[in-house]
């Protein structure tokens, strides 16, 4: 009787399991089997990783990876390995991606790159700053979710600020790109997957990236300002500053970092804080005019360059007009 009962229990378990277990993972190009929940061949995993127990795991189906009509889409074991021991209840999957994972970074990344390698935005991943610093794809990306924070410009910056703390403090300054407002994200200028430009710029140089939105600064101009043409960040901090126009320093200090001033005895001053207040004979090149308002740019307005060809005094070559 006891043996018969055990036999019936085993039969009951087998009947129940048949409701969920599918055949072994089908090859790519085949459709899901009746036992698969979300991905082709996922039955080996979803018999335990059910909707009740691990709902977040199944959310991968909401993404492009869950589009089974695309023969390229993976199954669980494509990324996590066959994981025979794990299936038998012994240990973790062959490849894991969480923060405490002991899977080598290269192995984790190869799970992604095996499909995503051949994409122009990742052509320079090998040898790039993030790759050589040991970042895994999953350091930034979440896969088992329909909302990958780093791919939404409203939430992307908080992912980048996990490591880039200096920029976290800068974007809240009053002169900033519209990143806190969710209108721009770090990836509007940077390609974190690698590039030929400095500081992982999307294009080949800092200036080329800046010109995509600020193309009026490209010139070339009749009267050019060489540090402008070389690198916008010679003068600007694009992450945010208290000084207007995202300048690293306000004029005159920024300009005096390269240029000899008009009058060496004019100490930058404020109205009301002058040892010798302005008089009727005070010249235009005075301590107030090159410190307050736009500083040197009160007169040298065309600081990015001027296309004025006039060869008549007063010359436009000093960026006056």
């Amino acid at each position: 009787m006891i043996e018969f009962r055990r036999y019936l229990l085993g039969l009951a378990a087998a009947v129940a399991a048949a409701g969920f277990l599918g055949a072994s993972a089908p090859a790519a190009g085949q459709t899901k089997s009746a036992d698969d929940l979300v991905l082709r061949g996922d039955a080996v995993c979803t018999k335990c990783h059910t909707a009740e127990l691990t709902p977040h795991v199944l959310e991968i189906a909401k993404t492009t990876m869950g589009t089974v009509a695309d023969p390229r889409t993976p199954t669980c074991t494509s990324c996590h390995g066959e994981s025979l021991k794990h299936r038998n209840g012994d240990g973790k999957p062959d490849v894991t991606f969480d923060k405490k994972s002991t899977t080598p970074i290269e192995a984790r990344n190869e799970a992604c790159l095996s499909c995503h390698r051949n994409d122009p935005s990742r052509s320079h991943w090998d040898g790039s700053t993030h790759q050589s610093r040991g970042l895994a794809c999953t350091s930034c990306h979440e896969v088992h979710t329909a909302h990958d924070k780093v791919r939404d410009k409203r939430t992307q910056p908080e992912v980048c600020f996990t490591c880039h703390k200096e920029q976290r403090g800068q974007i809240d300054r009053p002169s900033h790109h519209p990143i806190p407002e969710g209108k721009m994200a770090c990836s509007d200028c940077h390609n974190p997957h690698g590039s030929t430009g400095r500081a992982l710029m999307k294009r080949d140089s800092v200036n080329q990236v800046c010109y995509t939105c600020h193309m009026e600064k490209r010139g070339p101009f009749v009267h050019s300002h060489e540090p402008v043409d070389e690198d916008c960040t010679n003068c600007h901090n694009p992450h945010g500053t208290v000084t207007e126009n995202m300048l690293k320093m306000r004029p005159p200090f920024l300009c005096h970092s390269c240029h000899t001033p008009h009058s060496s005895n004019n100490i930058p001053a404020l109205l009301g804080l002058q040892d010798s207040p302005n008089s009727a004979t005070t010249t235009g090149k005075n301590a107030i005019n090159y410190n307050m308002a736009r500083g040197c740019l009160n007169c040298h307005t065309q600081v990015h360059g001027s296309n004025n060809p006039s060869v008549v005094d007063p010359t436009p070559q000093f960026m006056l007009r």
């Binding site: 019936l8 009951a12 009947v15 409701g19 969920f20 909707a51």
Partner: peptide, 26 residues
């Protein structure tokens, strides 16, 4: 035991499909 097994086989799949649909469809 037999009743539980029969119920699970008949309805367990249906229950999982409802949950699965909510979790897996865009």
């Amino acid at each position: 035991t037999l009743i539980a097994a029969a119920v699970l086989a008949a309805f367990g799949t249906a229950y999982a499909q409802d949950d699965v649909a909510a979790l897996t469809q865009p």
